[in-house]
C-alpha cells in the first residue's frame, strides 16, 4: 500500500486507507454498541447502538472487495447508511457522506490541508438535513467545531492533525452533556436531558478517534 507524501510534510489518505478507516469503525461500533444504546435509552429510544452497528456492518461487508475511487467509496458508505441505519442517524450520516463524496469527486487522496473542507461538507449536510444550527445537543455539535479544528491544523503533520481532530471530537461530544436538547427525540425531555451525553455526538467522536487510530497505525 503506497502513501503519497504531501507538500505539507504529512502523507495523503487514499482509498485503501479510507476503507480501512470505515472497516475499523464498523468493528469499533460492534464493541460500543451497548454503550451507545445505553446512552440513547437515557434520552432517546435506546437504539442508536443497534442502528449504527447494523449499518456499518453492512458498510464493512460491501467494502470488502471495493476497487473504485475515493469519492465512490464515500458514496457507497452514504447509500448503505441511508438504507441500513434508519432512524435519525441514518439520513444524517448518510447525507454527511453524500456531501463528502461530492466534495471528493475526481480526487485520489485527501491531504492534511483538505480535511477542513471535507468535514465542512459533511457538517453542512447534517445542518441542512437536521435543520440545526448548533447547541441543540446533537451530532452537529461535534461536526461543526471539527471544521475549525481541521482548519487550524491544516499545516500540521497528518498524525498530529488527526490526533487533534480526535481530541476535539471527544471534547465536543463531552460538552453535549451540559446542553439541553432542543432537536431529536431527546428534546421531549427538556431540562431533564441535561447531564447526559448525546449518543450521536459520541458516535461521531468515535468516528474521528478511529480515523486517527487507523491512519496513525497504517503504514507507520
Amino acid at each position: 500500500m503506497t502513501r503519497v507524501k504531501s507538500f505539507s510534510g504529512g502523507v495523503d489518505v487514499q482509498v485503501t486507507e479510507a476503507v480501512a478507516w470505515f472497516q475499523a469503525y464498523a468493528d469499533r461500533l460492534q464493541q460500543e454498541k451497548e454503550h451507545l444504546t445505553e446512552l440513547d435509552s437515557r434520552i432517546g429510544d435506546g437504539d442508536h447502538g443497534a442502528n449504527m452497528a447494523r449499518g456499518w456492518k453492512a458498510v464493512k461487508e460491501e467494502l470488502e472487495s471495493f476497487d473504485q475511487g475515493l469519492s465512490e467509496c464515500f458514496m457507497q458508505v452514504s447509500k448503505t447508511l441511508i438504507a441500513k441505519v434508519g432512524g435519525a442517524s441514518g439520513p444524517l450520516y448518510g447525507t454527511a457522506f453524500l456531501r463528502m463524496s461530492m466534495k471528493l469527486k475526481g480526487e485520489a487522496s485527501v491531504s492534511p490541508g483538505d480535511w477542513a473542507e471535507l468535514i465542512q461538507a459533511g457538517a453542512e449536510g447534517i445542518r441542512q438535513r437536521g435543520k440545526v444550527s448548533g447547541g441543540e445537543k446533537t451530532m452537529y455539535d461535534v461536526w461543526a467545531p471539527l471544521v475549525d479544528a481541521a482548519r487550524d491544523g491544516a499545516d500540521l503533520e497528518e498524525t498530529v492533525l488527526l490526533r487533534s481532530l480526535a481530541e476535539t471530537a471527544r471534547e465536543k461530544a463531552e460538552a453535549t452533556r451540559e446542553m439541553k436538547a432542543t432537536k431529536g427525540r431527546a428534546s421531549y425531555l427538556g431540562e431533564r436531558s441535561i447531564g447526559h451525553l448525546d449518543p450521536g455526538a459520541v458516535s461521531t467522536a468515535l468516528l474521528f478517534e478511529v480515523l486517527c487510530d487507523t491512519l496513525s497505525r497504517e503504514g507507520m
Binding site: 447494523r54 438504507a83 441500513k84 434508519g86 435519525a88 441514518g90 439520513p91
Partner: peptide, 9 residues
C-alpha cells in the same frame, strides 16, 4: 426496523 424510521428506499 423496530422503533426506527424506514429508509427512503
Amino acid at each position: 426496523n423496530i422503533f426506527a424510521s424506514p429508509p427512503p428506499d
